[in-house]
Each structure stands twice: as C-alpha cells, then as structure tokens.
Amino acid sequence: MKSASEEAVNAAREGIMLAKPEQGRLAASVRVWITNAAVLLAFVLLWEATAQYFESPFIPAPSAVLRAAIKLLIQGDVNGHTLWAHTGMSLLRVLAGFIAAAVMGVPLGLLMGLYPGLYRGTRSLIEPLRFIPPLAWIPIALVTLTGFTRYVFIIWLGAFFPIFVATLVGVPRVEILHKNVALVHGASRSWIVRKVVIPSILPDILGGMRVGLGVGWMCIVAAEMIGGESVGLGKLILKYAEMLRMAEIVVGMIIIGLCGLLMNEVLLVIERRLFRWRWEVRL
C-alpha cells in the first residue's frame, strides 16, 4: 500500500506533468475539436427539426441533402456530370483566377508601395475600380471574353484587390529601424527591398491572399453563371435552381464552403511555417 506522502508526491508530479506546455496545448486543441463538433451537430439537429416542422420541399432535411450528394457523386447531375467533375472544375477556375490575382497584385502593390507617387497619381482610377462588384462586370465579360478567360476574369476581379491592397499598405509600415540598420551598413535600395521590405510584408501579403481567396470563391457562382459550360459547382446550383430542387443546391453550397475552408487551411499552414517568428510573438 502506498503511503500518504508517496501519494502526495505522485499527485504533485502529475500536477507538474499537466502543467507542461505541450500537454496543455494538446488538451486545448482537443477541446477546440470537441467544441466544433458539438456546434456542427447542434446545427444539423436544428436544421433537421426545422425541416421536419415545415415539411416543405423547399426546406430539405439533412438526410435529403445527403441522399442528393450521394446521387450526385455516383450518378451525376441531369447532364451526367458527377460532383467530382463539378468540384474539380470550380477548383481549377478559382485557382487560375486567384493565381492571376496574386501574380499581378503582389508586384503591383509592391511597386506602388515603393513609389507612392505612382499610386497617388493613379488613385482616381484604381480606387473606384475597387468598389465595382464583379457581378457588375458580367455584361462586359460576356461580350468581350470567351471560355475559360471569362471565369478567370470574374474571379480575378474579386481576388485581386485584397492582395493588391494588403501589399500596398504593408510597404510603408516596414519598421524604419530595420531599414536604417541596412542603410548604415551601406545597403543599396534593391538590397533593402529584397532583404527588408519583402520579408517584412510577406505576412501581410499572405493575409491578403487568404482574403482574396475567399472573395474568389464568392465569385464562382457569378462566373459560372456566364461561363456557358454545364460543369462547375456554381453551375450546379444554377441548374437545380431552375428546377427548384433545393437539396442539390445545398450540396453545391456546402462543397463550395468546404473547398474554401480547405484552401484557407493550406494557406494558414504555410503562414505558420513561414512566419513562426510572427505567430509566436502574438501568442
């Protein structure tokens, strides 16, 4: 039998073990998972209850949505496109528009941040453009563009400005002291841009990319409305909207949400890897 003092020592040891940061962090992340699962479950139950209460074909129950999803996965939609094809196509379009936005937004933001005169001189053109919704561009896109470029253009419109603006406003916020360290040692302007400005604003750029990606996904329905092809998650929603089949529409909505979530998580992981120094500072 253990003595009382021995037990006390063990208890104290356990206390110390629990206080170890890795274990605390693990426990916290398990808690977060459990909380999220509970919230999701509560939402589905509430949804089910609402559907049962109204018993309307316009409020599909979760079970009906699941059945629709399985059917779309295996048999495909009215045109025979499976859910995989829809998802893959939309993913491709969003990625293309997003990459185009990043490839243009980052250098342009950097350039205008480094030469503020360039931005001030073109402000009257750039700033109003920022507030025109991608939807408003649809007629112009319809008459001037064809095929894949239409989708890319609409998504690019949505994703470009968050990335451009994040880069632009990051540049003047670079610590003067960090620049001065390089200046005192005789660094050239281009060296400072490469070694001070870019590392300083990379976190801002990645933040802008996450916002841009979100807006890009939001534009997918608009883009596929005018695309002409019958494949794509946005198109799926539009097709079933005409037939007033809510279950398939909800499937499309959920998949868009999940794709956005997954891509956002990927960017977050990159951000955490690249900017450990910055994340740890904030914790």
Partner: peptide
C-alpha cells in the same frame, strides 16, 4: 549603429 530600440530583424 547600435540603436536604443531592439533593431534585430525578427525573421
């Protein structure tokens, strides 16, 4: 130059 404020590059 050794500055008064911490001037290390955090990255």
């Amino acid at each position: 130059f050794v500055f008064q404020e911490p001037s290390l590059w955090p990255w």
